[in-house]
Every structure is written in C-alpha cells, then in structure tokens.
C-alpha cells in the first residue's frame, strides 16, 4: 500500500470515527429528551439544592447526601424514571424532610450542588406548601382537624389558622390553614400528615405555587404604616342623614343593638 493511500485510509477512518461518535452522541439528547424541568411537581430536591439547571450541572449523582440522610428521606432516582437518573429527591407524602439542625445532606455534598451557604435549615426552600383542595380540607368543611398546622416545624409562622365566619352554620368559625411563603421551607411534614386519603395540602415547586403581584401595586395599609399617616390626606367625612351624631362609619341605626355578625340567617332560638 502506498503512503498516499495509507494516509487517505487513515483520514477516511478518522472521518468515520467522528461520524460514528457524533451519531452515538446524537442519541443522548433523544434519550434524555424531556420537557424543560420536567421533574414531576411532587419530586422535591434536598435542602439547599441549586436551581434545577445549575443543579443538573453540579450534581455528580454520587448519592452522598442520600447516605447521610438520617431519616431515609432522600433517594436516588433510578434510570429511566420520571426524575433525572441518579439525582437525589424526595416525595413529601412518603417521607418528608425532618429539617435536621445540622443539615447533614448539605454537608455531605462534595460539589456544592447543595449549596454549603445554607447553614440555617429555616432558610431552605425545597418547595412551598399549598392548600390545594378547599373542597376536601376538613378545616374548610368546618371541622377542627388542624393536623397540618400542628405538625408544621415552623408552626404559627409557616402555617397559621385564619379564623373567619362560617356562613353555613352562621355561628361557628372556619379555621383555615394558611401557608406563608416567608417561612415555609417545603419540608412536606404537612403533606405527609394530612389525614385524608389524598392530601389536601401539597408541597409544590415554589415557581409553580407562587403568584406574583404586579410591580406597581402598593398595599395602602403598608404604605400608610411606613409613612406614619395616610399618603393621600385624611378622607373627607360626608354627613350621613340621620346619623349625624354618630362616629364616622358607624352605620348602626339602633345604637344599643349588638353589631351584626356577617350574614343574618334569621335563626331564632
């Protein structure tokens, strides 16, 4: 074989190798093709996890966080499952995060995919609890279940019970579990503890759960408190005929009657 034909053969082999390698690699995105951020909403990342695109660049799928989780909350995703193969996640309804004070999973992470700057577990934002079903939540039905509220590790901050009038009975309160995103870590204790066969409160990714006000919205009461007084001056008090001797805004006709309580059902003892 002449040197020229040998060189040509080498060159052609190189081309074939490159083409073969390219063909093999082009299979990868096909196999990995999933809609962006297609992890199921119920699969939660460990505390301190970077946002999903960064997390998938940083996590080497070593499972050290899984090994150091004392409650077996974290698991590694199997290949071909709904979560990116080999990455850690947990499902709140199965085993929620117990919010360890020393955050061993973050300490175990060698790459920083779980951000080592997270030193107070209360700053973790694994997700956001949402009382997603008002139709089955026992407290919304007027019962005193309160379980999600009671088990919340950040009780009275992350979940409060908001008391409102129960118009159905007209003389009871509804104590509505209300989640506050300022404090909810997304640990999932509420979802795990919900007594219903299917939880009415669920932890969801923050981006999925959270609404947003337009930038130009201001809350009058906050602005007023910050300013010390009303920003638009005192309201003009127009006289109301027949109520001239009453405090402004007091519309009761019979001064001695008790104040009305919501909708009057006309109930009599």
């Amino acid at each position: 074989m002449s040197p020229a034909s040998l060189a040509r053969r080498k060159f052609l082999n190189g081309i074939a190798a490159a083409a073969g390698g390219g063909a093999l690699l082009s299979l990868v995105p096909l196999l990995a093709a999933r809609p962006a951020g297609a992890n199921p909403a119920q699969a939660l990342r460990p505390p301190g996890a970077l946002n999903e695109p960064d997390f998938l660049a940083a996590c080497v799928r070593c499972g050290l966080c899984v090994r150091d989780c004392p409650y077996d909350t974290l698991v590694l995703a199997p290949v071909g499952g709904e979560v990116t193969g080999g990455t850690p996640y947990f499902k709140a309804r199965s085993i929620p995060c117990e919010m360890c004070e020393d955050i061993p999973c973050v300490k175990a992470c060698p790459t920083g995919a779980l951000n080592p700057k997270l030193t107070d577990i209360h700053d973790a934002r694994m997700g956001l609890a949402v009382l997603s079903d008002h139709e089955t939540c026992l407290n919304y039905l007027g019962l005193r279940c309160d379980v999600c509220y009671r088990v919340c590790p950040v009780i009275d901050k992350a979940i409060t019970l908001e008391s409102i009038h129960n118009p159905r009975s007209d003389r009871h309160a509804l104590l509505l579990p209300t989640v506050h995103s300022d404090h909810c870590t997304g640990c999932g204790k509420c979802e795990a503890a919900c007594v219903l066969p299917e939880a009415a409160i669920k932890v969801m990714p923050v981006a999925l759960a959270k609404g947003a006000l337009p930038d130009h919205y201001r809350k009058g009461w906050e602005e007023k408190a910050r300013h010390g007084s009303s920003l638009i001056g005192d309201q003009v008090e127009m006289p109301v005929r027949g109520l001239e001797d009453k405090a402004y805004g007091d519309v009761r006709v019979d001064r001695d009657a008790p104040p009305p309580a919501g909708i009057n059902s006309g109930w009599k003892p």
């Binding site: 990995a32 695109p53 998938l56 660049a57």
Partner: peptide, 18 residues
C-alpha cells in the same frame, strides 16, 4: 470530546444520563 461539548451546550451533565 462530544460529551464535553454536549455538557457545554446544554449546561447539564448530559452524558451522565446515559
């Protein structure tokens, strides 16, 4: 080389999926 380029273009450890 392709696996590293894939990582660079996608910003994730794409090769590790397979």
């Amino acid at each position: 080389a392709g696996s590293l380029l894939l990582a660079a273009f996608t910003g994730t450890l794409m090769w590790e999926v397979v």
